[in-house]
Computed example of a mutant assay.
Amino acid sequence: MQKFQIVKKPAYAIESVDNALQLILLLQERDALRVNEAAERLGVAPSTAHRLLATLLYRGFALQDESRRYTAGPALRGVTRQGRLQEVVSTALPQLEELASAVGETVNLVARFGTSVRFIASVESAQLLRVGDRSGTVLPARLSSGGKAILATLDGEALHQLYSGRVAQLAGDHLSADELGALQEELARVRAKGYALNLGRTEPDIAAVGVAVPAPAQRSWLAVSLSAPRSRAEALDRPDTLAALRGCCDTIAASLEAVQLAGPH
């Protein structure tokens, strides 16, 4: 006789967490989900369902289409239709290791989820004074070098929606008109140079430079960054270092495309 266990809802279940998990299951089961449908399914007010979906959107578990419907996000799709996030890391790792050996600094692969970037892989520098493994670290995209490099591939409308829409307000990422204008000006400079610098903006003693990994439709979702102690910040901006970084990104893009892992959706 087959043995199985009946899992009951715990008496100590946290309702908001349970509702969020139910929404994740719904997003996996359906092609699209509207706020009213989510509210009806959960038995909550539409405003509550909207806040839950906005949080899932912020963390990459949901996406919103042109009709304001919610669909499964990159965190549920393993970032790509064709494969899983770990496959992306495995494909890029040889290039990351080669770059770390060539430049002597810690190399990171970062992915954007909403207004944040997550470090999904790191190869540490062999130098005694170095930046350690950053894997798992989450930073605001608009402050980190890799995040800014990725954001620079978005158009003005996409940026406005990301930082000025209702979701941004609910997630605490809303920027004023002046702040958004300043960000757009900074991203224009990043776009012109082809790379982004972060000199102590996220951590005072760390400098970083990031370049977006080219992607279809010019909207990147990955970037490679170099992290170093502030004392070696000037080395990150050298032409040879930047050339090696760009070459790494181009090679990763080609490798991901070859195994059909190039796009986030």
Rank of each mutant, 00 (worst) to 15 (best):
I6D: 10
K8Y: 05
A11L: 14
Y12W: 11
A13E: 13
S16K: 07
S16V: 08
S16L: 15
V17L: 15
N19T: 02
L21Y: 07
L23S: 06
I24S: 10
L25M: 08
R30P: 01
A32Q: 09
A32W: 04
L33F: 11
R34V: 03
V35C: 10
V35W: 03
N36G: 00
A38K: 04
E40Y: 04
R41L: 14
A45M: 09
A45S: 05
S47A: 15
H50P: 00
R51A: 13
L52G: 06
T55Q: 15
L57G: 06
G60M: 15
Q64M: 12
D65N: 11
Y70G: 14
T71P: 00
Q82N: 14
V88T: 03
V88I: 15
S90W: 06
T91Q: 14
L93V: 01
P94R: 07
E97Y: 00
A100L: 01
S101Q: 07
S101Y: 01
A102Y: 01
V103H: 01
G104P: 03
T106L: 05
N108M: 07
V110A: 09
G114D: 08
T115Y: 09
F119P: 01
F119R: 02
A121C: 10
S122F: 03
V123T: 01
V123E: 00
E124S: 04
E124H: 04
E124P: 06
E124V: 07
S125V: 03
Q127C: 13
Q127A: 14
L128M: 09
R134N: 10
G136D: 07
T137H: 14
P140I: 06
R142P: 01
S144F: 06
G147D: 12
L151D: 14
L151V: 03
T153I: 14
T153Q: 12
G156H: 12
G156P: 00
E157D: 11
E157H: 09
L159D: 02
L159W: 10
G165Y: 05
V167E: 13
Q169I: 00
L170N: 10
G172D: 05
G172C: 14
H174E: 12
S176V: 01
D178H: 03
D178F: 08
E179K: 07
E179M: 08
E179N: 06
G181E: 10
A182Q: 13
L183C: 11
Q184Y: 03
E185Q: 14
E186W: 01
E186Q: 12
R189M: 13
R189I: 04
L197S: 11
R201V: 04
V209T: 05
V209K: 07
G210C: 11
G210D: 08
G210I: 03
A212H: 02
V213T: 00
P216Y: 13
A217W: 09
S220C: 11
A223K: 05
S225N: 08
S225E: 13
A228R: 09
A228N: 02
P229C: 15
S231H: 06
R232K: 04
E234L: 09
E234P: 00
A235S: 08
R238K: 07
R238D: 04
P239C: 15
D240W: 13
L242W: 07
A244N: 05
L245K: 05
C248T: 06
I252M: 05
S255W: 10
V259M: 11
V259Q: 12
V259P: 00
Q260P: 01
A262P: 00
G263E: 12
G263M: 09
H265N: 08
